[in-house]
Design a protein around this nucleic acid. Structure first.
Lengths: 150, 150
DNA sequence: TGTGAAAAAGTCGCGAG
DNA sequence: CTCGCGACTTTTTCACA
């Protein structure tokens, strides 16, 4: 699908604030409200807009600890990858599973209530995942999300 | 703030699908629509719900390459951190800046149009950031988001 | 694309439990 | 303090020029 300038403006505005109405957006663009709405719908159907996601404050939801894990598999056949992904998908504390290329094979984002809880998850669930070789951990201190390009 | 069972059910449902109406949600919970709406608003005002964010398909938006970077600073005074954060905040291709504890000091999520474009960003913007010591990169192959605990 | 109108959802005040 | 009901407002959605 081809994106024109108006599409890009719409995406930029919605990335900055996904809660604004098409009426507000239309006013900013100098476009009619239905025209704006049709463009948004077109972007959704084309899959450019994948959806809207709720942003939770993990700490206020009772999960004070967020950890980024880099995981290197010891054995890497096709079966190993599928086994690992299936097993890791069964751990509720895992928020995202990124298959990556580089020093590690997977990057995981894991949340826990506190450090004691994280140790439990790490020892009883993560370290026992099939095929895990090396693991590197980074504890999140603070996070800033930026608008990105476009 | 204290979360009761209904609050948790609401959060779980909205994390799974942030686009559903409060009417639909209320029906699932066996609650009235205004009551559901008031709880959601309460969760927003308490900051548990930080907001809604648009989910873009980076590839379909013209950014086919996503890279995770681990950055180790060479010098780490208070000034260094602030300098680094200010400078990294000025790079549009950087989507998230995570201040972390561990082998690296920062984790960045960076998008680019293609590998050639990423090389440009890496050489001209990222490697020249103030105080950068060591850098590790992982190229994203595929990503899966999971509902998380709750 | 714009105009205009119907359908749906969000928002608020009030009385009951 | 939270619920449900009913009224009002805003937004979404669609038909037609």
């Amino acid at each position: 699908m081809t994106l024109d300038d108006l599409d890009r403006m719409i995406l930029r505005a919605l990335v900055a604030n996904a809660d604004q109405s098409t009426t507000q957006l239309a006013a900013k663009l100098g476009l009619s409200q239905p025209a704006t709405w049709r463009r948004i719908k077109r972007l959704q159907e084309a899959g450019v807009i994948a959806g809207r996601r709720l942003q939770l404050d993990a700490a206020k939801a009772g999960f004070g600890v967020t950890v980024f894990l880099g995981v290197k598999l010891a054995t890497k056949g096709r079966v190993s990858l599928e086994d690992f992904e299936r097993a890791v998908g069964a751990i509720p504390e895992v928020q995202t599973v990124d298959h990556v290329l580089g020093l590690y094979d997977y990057r995981l984002r894991v949340v826990a209530r506190d450090l004691a809880d994280f140790e439990r998850v790490l020892r009883r669930r993560l370290m026992t995942l099939p095929g895990v070789g090396n693991v590197e951990a980074n504890v999140l201190l603070s996070e800033e999300r930026r608008p990105g390009p476009l």
